[in-house]
Amino acid sequence: MDEINALSWEPFIQQFGNVVEHGRIVAGAIWGLRPFADTKALHEAVCEFMDSLPPNGKESILRCYPDPAGRLAQANQLSSESAQEQSSAGLLNLSQEESNLIADMNTRYKEKFNFPFVICARENKKVVIIAELKSRIHNSKDAELEKGINEVKKIAWYRIVDATAMESKSAISKM
């Protein structure tokens, strides 16, 4: 963590700017909270920032995420993190029937909630993701906003672990 805590603004933003999808503002908000004791403390800072947002700010965070197996995935335009996550869940290898079902459910979900369905793909496979999409569409907007932000927190944890591991490898290679 010493190397991470010593990062100046721009390198910190480059390293952690996609911990929350396209979330350079999140990384910028927590940069001033350094030093972090450990990876958990860094994650807690991200979570506390998101928890402090009003509902429309939380909705904005969710809108930064791509639809599962959506248009960006089909056009190969996902961030490297999202592409890896969706691939590991099997969302980039769908049958035509699965693809059509997810596309329909994504559309219905966004029409109802005005933000995309977000789930931590690293903790799920496509069968579970499809089932969750079918189930969660029946929730209230408040419940889905809370569930979506909690999923973003899970995603952020994995991305922070990846980003801090990269920093550790970089520090070791400089020795």
Rank of each mutant, 00 (worst) to 15 (best):
C120S: 13
R122E: 08
R122C: 09
K147T: 15
N139M: 09
A131S: 09
F113W: 08
S135A: 12
P116I: 07
N114K: 15
K134R: 14
R136Q: 11
F115N: 08
A131C: 00
R122W: 07
F113M: 10
P116L: 04
E111Y: 13
K141S: 07
V128F: 09
E144G: 04
F113S: 08
I119W: 07
D142M: 06
R136Y: 05
K141T: 04
C120Q: 09
I137H: 01
V127Q: 15
K126F: 06
I119M: 11
R136L: 03
K147N: 15
I129M: 08
K147Y: 14
F115Q: 05
A121S: 15
I130G: 03
I137P: 04
S135L: 08
K147R: 15
I129R: 02
H138C: 02
P116T: 07
C120T: 08
D142R: 08
E123P: 11
K110E: 06
N114G: 13
I129K: 02
I137W: 00
K141F: 01
K141W: 02
I137Y: 00
S135I: 01
I119V: 15
D142S: 12
A121Y: 08
I130P: 03
A143L: 12
N139W: 01
S140T: 14
C120F: 13
K112H: 10
H138N: 10
R136N: 10
C120E: 12
R122K: 14
F117H: 07
A143D: 14
A143G: 10
E123D: 15
F117Y: 12
E144A: 04
